[in-house]
Simulated assay, not measured.
Amino acid sequence: MLVFLGLPLALFAVFVVWPFVQAIYYSMTDWTGFTPDMSFVGLDNYQKLLHDDVFMKAVRNNLLLAVVVPLVTVVLSFALATMITVGGASYGQTRGLRFSSFYRVISFFPYTVPAIIIGLIWAQMYDPSSGLLNGLLTGVGLDRFDSFPWLGDTTTAMPASMFVIIWGFVGFYMVLFVAAIKGIPSEFYDAARIDGAGRFRIAWSITIPLIRDTIQTAYIYLGILALDAFVYMAALNPGGGPANSTLVMPQRLLDTAFAKGQFGLASAMGVVMAIATLAFAAIVFTVNRLVGRRERTVAR
């Protein structure tokens, strides 16, 4: 077994663990990125980050994304997957809605488009003067949206950006949940319907517990995406939005490293991102384990 695991572990150590260790070291230096000279400064870079209002704003934006995007995406994806698989007629054989295959194809389509393309398309749709969204809204009589700056207003820039990310991933995770739900024996649903359970009760008591691991995986991946979100935000608002309302940590990191030549400080930002990602995954794992343990206790 060691023979088979040796090479993968070696590759993992070289290409994953070692760069992370290097990043931690560089984060404690004043490296400019363009010369081999660097001085060890300890935790000074991390102290600078704590007093960097722009970076802290980016951290708050990423945390907001990590709370909203996974939750909304998972809920919508699960609701759509439930309708497609078991949301059909409440009598007879358990089945989904009619034309469910067509819905799966249509909803999955956005995921096949590269993230940068999605961001650029929606940036054009949000355009105040020639965007399709304002044109449709004013066309139905909502004149207050004439030349409305969706990405240029502090109250709408972040929600509009979140919508784009959610729109791009709902279809993929819906298909993921559809595959998981189809693995549940239909007898469970038939028995629950005979006992008089409604759709919400069936989803809460049968579907969610039986696909909990899939939901956990989806939530973690979406959280990791939200704690990055660089491609979407860079395409929608390259400058970070009005008053940095859509600025995310990778954007600040890129500017710090390549525009200001402060690679040591940028490495500290990268370490903070890695810690935030690991902490998010640990929280999701812990909550899922506690909820699953409580359900098993109640079932006994």
Score class of each variant (00 low, 15 high):
9 L>Q: 06
213 D>K: 11
171 G>N: 06
157 A>H: 00
110 P>D: 05
84 I>A: 12
274 A>Y: 08
185 P>T: 08
169 F>E: 07
32 T>A: 11
271 V>F: 01
40 F>P: 06
293 R>P: 07
256 T>Q: 04
141 G>H: 03
177 F>W: 05
8 P>F: 08
224 I>T: 11
245 S>W: 07
283 I>K: 07
223 G>L: 01
270 G>H: 00
219 Y>C: 12
254 L>A: 08
192 A>D: 06
221 Y>G: 09
7 L>Y: 13
184 I>R: 09
11 L>G: 12
172 F>V: 05
281 A>S: 13
78 F>T: 11
192 A>T: 08
91 Y>Q: 14
107 S>N: 14
235 A>V: 08
53 D>K: 15
127 D>T: 05
149 P>A: 05
259 A>M: 14
74 V>F: 04
42 G>E: 10
153 D>S: 12
278 L>P: 00
275 I>S: 03
217 T>G: 12
74 V>P: 04
231 V>F: 05
271 V>C: 06
167 W>L: 04
254 L>G: 00
115 A>D: 11
231 V>H: 00
236 L>G: 09
143 D>W: 11
146 D>G: 06
185 P>F: 10
285 F>V: 12
218 A>L: 05
218 A>R: 01
126 Y>T: 05
203 A>V: 15
14 V>F: 13
198 G>E: 07
237 N>T: 15
147 S>K: 15
277 T>E: 09
269 M>G: 05
222 L>F: 02
39 S>D: 15
2 L>Q: 11
96 G>R: 07
146 D>L: 11
223 G>I: 00
18 W>E: 09
21 V>I: 12
64 L>T: 14
25 Y>V: 12
294 R>I: 12
250 P>I: 02
23 A>W: 05
168 G>Y: 02
54 V>D: 05
260 K>L: 01
271 V>H: 07
45 N>T: 04
284 V>W: 02
291 V>R: 00
178 V>L: 02
210 L>Y: 04
292 G>A: 08
92 G>A: 10
40 F>V: 15
264 G>D: 00
239 G>L: 14
20 F>H: 01
76 L>S: 03
299 A>G: 10
66 A>W: 01
274 A>R: 02
36 P>H: 09
181 I>T: 05
265 L>W: 02
293 R>T: 13
53 D>C: 10
1 M>H: 14
104 R>Q: 13
287 V>S: 07
50 L>M: 15
300 R>Q: 13
12 F>C: 04
29 T>I: 03
99 F>T: 00
164 V>H: 01
180 A>V: 08
19 P>L: 04
107 S>R: 07
287 V>G: 01
109 F>H: 07
104 R>N: 06
32 T>L: 08
1 M>G: 10
2 L>D: 13
61 N>C: 05
130 S>F: 15
161 S>I: 02
206 I>W: 03
218 A>D: 02
11 L>S: 11
206 I>Y: 02
102 F>H: 05
80 L>Q: 04
56 M>L: 15
126 Y>E: 03
293 R>G: 09
136 L>Q: 07
67 V>N: 07
134 N>M: 06
216 Q>T: 15
102 F>N: 02
242 P>M: 03
69 V>H: 06
199 R>D: 10
51 H>A: 13
